[in-house]
Design a protein around this nucleic acid. Sequence first.
DNA 1: ACCTGAACACCGTTCAAGT
DNA 2: ACCTGAACACCGTTCAAGT
Lengths: 220, 220
Amino acid sequence: MPIERVIAAAVKLVDEVGPGDFSMRLLAQRLQSSTATLYRHFASKDEIFAEVVDHVLGEVPRHLTDTADTATWQERLITIADALFRTLKKHPTVVSLFNDHIPFGPQGLAARETAMGVLLSSGFSPEAAAKAYTVVAHYTIGFASQLGAYAGDGPEDDQGIREFYDSLDPARYPATVASAPFLPSSLDDEFRFGLQLIVDGLTTQLAAVPTPTTPSPHRR
Amino acid sequence: MPIERVIAAAVKLVDEVGPGDFSMRLLAQRLQSSTATLYRHFASKDEIFAEVVDHVLGEVPRHLTDTADTATWQERLITIADALFRTLKKHPTVVSLFNDHIPFGPQGLAARETAMGVLLSSGFSPEAAAKAYTVVAHYTIGFASQLGAYAGDGPEDDQGIREFYDSLDPARYPATVASAPFLPSSLDDEFRFGLQLIVDGLTTQLAAVPTPTTPSPHRR
DNA sequence: ACCTGAACACCGTTCAAGT
DNA sequence: ACCTGAACACCGTTCAAGT
């Protein structure tokens, strides 16, 4: 009956069977209760999913690796994005739920506050921080959303994808075949590659305006 | 009974009611047929969704704006990503289906081939082209995946989000409140901002290796 | 007050039976 | 050979009835 127990069980169930096979009946059964009882705590399945998203966001701080006081804002921003990405990778089936609603729950707000604090104390202007965090958060969640496509039943692992493009008719798909051997080795590598590009781009962009870009100690 | 008519009706139905409310019965009814007949053409609902994704990808070329022969690869790459993003924006409820499977259908292959052709003929090495296209494609689809979150029932429009963050307790969420007035004005603007960052990053990255980055006429 | 079995109006998928 | 009504085993959500 404690609400937190329901949410924890819901997270576990989504992790195990995915949002598609998740059902109120299954959840009620696991809690040795009935669906009608669940509806006294939550208005709908969707509301439970929102709580699941918030619960998962609560794990982000655990994946935040310590950064030295001398770390640049670039290093700090990459650390934050990486913590979010690693959290989502631990709950691959949950990620799609992030695309239904903006995470306005307490853990979502806390994650945003922590990240914005790091950026502001690293010398970002409020405007630059808002744009940087928003784009990095959307980039990270967007990439993680596609994790599911690489865990299906087709030739959908790194090696299989390369082989598939390589096996196409070179007369019909010359450019695709030519580049097939050079495809990124994993969505992970690609995520880091793109994240670095964005941070590089932010560095260039910020250097062009009077916003201070020199690192300053975080939360001294 | 022609298979293309079924797919066209499926796209229309997903556009209208979303994947959640889409049902085989509803589709059969629109086609004045029965669900059992649908199963003689497609093995499952999932297979129909795969065809819907491919059909939508077929619209990308229509959104490709003409680029001058003197256009840089940066301009060409942005044009390609923008065409994909605009296509997905026209089918916001379809986008989530992109996250279930890699688009290996004929239209998906054609879109990839066109984009890779542009990059290769713009002077990219096969390796640089593969990495650049993959990261840009995932970036674009990832961003578009989150379009749904900004069309819900909460305070989920640009103005409402700003107001929500602005109304938080400044003592508890100082960094969030400080940056609230500067949030990007729309997911559109943010998409273009991030895309520019990635292209800027690619420019820096490519300048550091012997890969030619000078524009050359496309498909002369 | 708190809980729940059973019901309602749906699903995806299959199959025996019709033309 | 091609189609389909009806069935099967499920859904989310509600509500009358029980303690």
